[in-house]
Amino acid sequence: MNFPVQQAQGPDRIGQSTAVEQSRAVAEVQAAIYVARQFPRDVGRSRASMQAACGSLALAEKAFYEFPRAGGKVTGSTIHLAKTLAQSWGNIQYGVSEMRRDDEYRQSEMQAWAWDVEANTRHVLTFIVPHAKFARGKVEALTDLRDIYENNANSGARRLREAIFAVIPDFFIDEAEGLCRETIAKGDGKPLPERIDGAIKVFQQLGVNADRLEQKLGRPRAQWNGADIAQLLITHKSIQRREIAVDEAFPQAHITGSEIKKQAGGKNTPPNDAPWPSEPTN
Rank of each mutant, 00 (worst) to 15 (best):
M110L: 13
E140T: 06
F64Y: 11
T256H: 05
R181N: 01
A230P: 08
G137E: 09
D174Y: 04
K237W: 08
G137T: 06
F172R: 02
S17C: 00
T281F: 07
Q240K: 09
Y105M: 12
P251L: 09
L85W: 12
R106N: 12
A63L: 06
E162G: 03
A52S: 12
P68I: 03
R69K: 14
E194F: 00
S155D: 01
P4R: 13
T18H: 10
S238A: 15
E98I: 15
L232W: 04
R181D: 02
P270L: 07
D170F: 02
V29N: 07
F172M: 06
A82M: 14
E150W: 06
D174R: 15
L57I: 15
Q93F: 07
Q93Y: 05
T183S: 03
R195K: 10
V96A: 14
F67R: 13
A163C: 05
G218C: 11
A230W: 02
N120V: 06
A27Y: 01
I79G: 14
P68G: 05
P130E: 00
R13T: 13
A53K: 04
A58L: 08
C180I: 01
S46H: 02
N91K: 10
K267D: 03
L81S: 11
Y65P: 08
S88F: 05
A185I: 02
R136K: 01
A8C: 12
P270S: 03
T183W: 02
G15T: 09
E104Y: 13
N120Q: 13
Q16L: 15
S155E: 03
Q9R: 14
A8F: 14
S238H: 10
Y149F: 15
W113D: 02
N154E: 08
Y94G: 06
I260D: 00
V5L: 15
P280W: 12
G178P: 03
R100N: 07
N154Q: 13
Q223P: 00
V20K: 12
K201M: 12
K262V: 01
Y65E: 11
S23Y: 00
E214Y: 07
T235P: 05
C180A: 08
V43P: 11
T143Q: 04
I196A: 07
E61W: 05
V74R: 15
S108H: 03
G44Q: 12
H123S: 14
A153T: 15
K237T: 13
S88P: 05
E118V: 01
W113K: 13
I244P: 05
S46K: 02
A227W: 03
I229W: 11
A25W: 04
S49E: 07
A52G: 05
Q231M: 14
R100A: 04
N120L: 04
L81Y: 13
G266P: 00
D273W: 10
A60K: 13
R242H: 14
A112Q: 04
K73L: 08
E28D: 14
F3G: 12
L206P: 07
K186I: 01
H254E: 11
H123P: 01
Q87M: 08
S17R: 01
A48C: 01
V20Q: 11
R47F: 10
R181C: 00
G44R: 07
E259G: 03
G90S: 11
D103L: 15
F134C: 02
L142V: 09
K267N: 03
I173T: 12
K267E: 04
Q240R: 08
A63W: 09
